[in-house]
């Protein structure tokens, strides 16, 4: 049917901005738990997103080409965002 949402899609409306702030907004809108590395992400700008999509699509669009990485906990869907760990 036209206009039907897939079950796991959510409407997101997040402006571009400081990753530390915008990623928290993402977590609130997505209804997920989140841990954000302040030391690493302060000052990095994420992209704006607008529309209905899955949580992961939304996150990946926001952090595209920023260098930010994320891990999603398989059991609980909680997300951690940071820069890649140094070896």
């Amino acid at each position: 049917m036209l206009g039907c949402q897939k079950e796991d899609e959510i409407h997101f409306s997040i402006e571009s901005g400081n990753a530390v702030k915008t990623l928290k907004v993402f977590a609130i809108q997505a209804g997920v738990e989140i841990l954000i590395d302040e030391n690493e992400l302060e000052g990095i700008q994420t992209r704006s997103i607008e529309g209905t999509m899955t949580k992961i699509d939304a996150l990946e669009l926001m952090i595209f080409e920023t260098g930010i990485v994320y891990n999603r906990d398989q059991e609980t869907d909680a997300i951690a965002v940071s820069l890649p760990q140094k070896e």
Binding site: K24, I34, L35, E38, V69, N71, E75, A78, A80, Q85
Partner: peptide, 26 residues
């Protein structure tokens, strides 16, 4: 403790908290 973070995490979700500390926070 130099690690500073923004958190929004359920207080009983300890195991996931630890897993994510290991995966993303060194």
């Amino acid at each position: 403790d130099d690690t500073r973070m923004t958190s929004m995490f359920w207080s009983d979700n300890i195991n996931a908290f630890i897993r994510l500390l290991e995966s993303n926070f060194g």
